[in-house]
Design a protein around this nucleic acid. Structure first.
Length: 233
DNA sequence: TGTTATGGTTCGGTTACCTCA
DNA sequence: TATGAGGTAACCGAACCATAA
């Protein structure tokens, strides 16, 4: 590894990079020549092992497109593929390797942002739902106190709830199967359906209690530990 | 068979460079 | 013209794995 890096530093392959940099600059500058100094000039002046310790070399659109295609096919490369791709693009294998490393990092970062946004929205929805349910509970308790009657068993049409203490998610046991096995004495309410969105695959590591079905009537969590449930009241 | 050294790869974090507003 | 922000190529160190001695 160290040896490879040393080799890379010693051999700074101007051939593979001069064209890319100048090409990219021409594309971006619009006029084609802004009078700015090009990397090719630097390469000629500094040469391999010159004073410039690190050269920033833009890839051309064509090179990027090919790399993107390969990345879509597989996000990692074996040594043979790396060599072949480098030869095809006129780059050093190390450049191809670095490009794939950075590309993987970008992909992961983007996915993390998407996941984060999704969880944020989901949390907001649950918060709203929680507020609404608490209000409903207060109303029912007030009603019960007003009638001052003994405990009335809930009508069959009412819904049984359970909530996961770790993520505060509510299970609706009257709407299809639930993996919750929390016992008895569940509270009752008239409107309890928490709509479940389809879950992004990448979120699977975040919360085991995520709804696994998009249908609003399938509030089924994939918890492997149903004891996480508790009574709502 | 278990241990150790070595080489290769990937990843997370960081730096340095380039472009543009 | 100077400058700050954003994008990204390149680097570094750590961790992991496979293989040979």
């Amino acid at each position: 590894m160290e040896k490879e890096k040393e080799d890379e530093e010693r051999v700074s392959s101007p051939d593979s990079t001069v064209s890319s940099v100048s090409g990219k600059r021409l594309e971006r500058s619009g006029s084609g020549n802004t009078g700015s100094r090009t990397i090719s000039d630097e390469d000629e002046e500094d040469g391999p092992g010159g004073s410039c310790s690190r050269k920033k070399l833009r890839l051309t659109k064509e090179q990027s497109a090919v790399l993107e295609d390969c990345f879509r096919a597989h996000s990692t490369l074996n040594p043979h593929q790396k060599q072949a791709l480098a030869a095809q693009l006129g780059l050093r294998p190390r450049q191809v390797e670095v490009w794939f490393q950075n590309r993987r990092a970008r992909t992961k970062l983007k996915q993390t942002e998407v996941d984060c946004e999704y969880l944020k929205r989901w949390c907001e929805r649950l918060t709203d739902e929680n507020k609404r349910l608490q209000k409903e509970v207060a109303e029912l308790r007030a009603l019960k106190a007003a009638t001052s009657s003994p405990a009335i068993p809930p009508p069959a049409s009412m819904t049984t709830l359970a909530m996961c203490p770790s993520c505060q998610r509510v299970s609706n046991s009257s709407k299809g199967p639930s993996l919750f096995t929390g016992n008895s004495a569940m509270a009752t309410t008239s409107a309890t359906t928490v709509k479940a969105n389809s879950k992004p695959a990448a979120l699977s590591n975040y919360c085991q209690f995520f709804p696994i079905a998009a249908g609003s009537n399938q509030n089924m969590w994939t918890s492997t530990n149903a004891l996480h449930t508790r009574e709502l009241f």
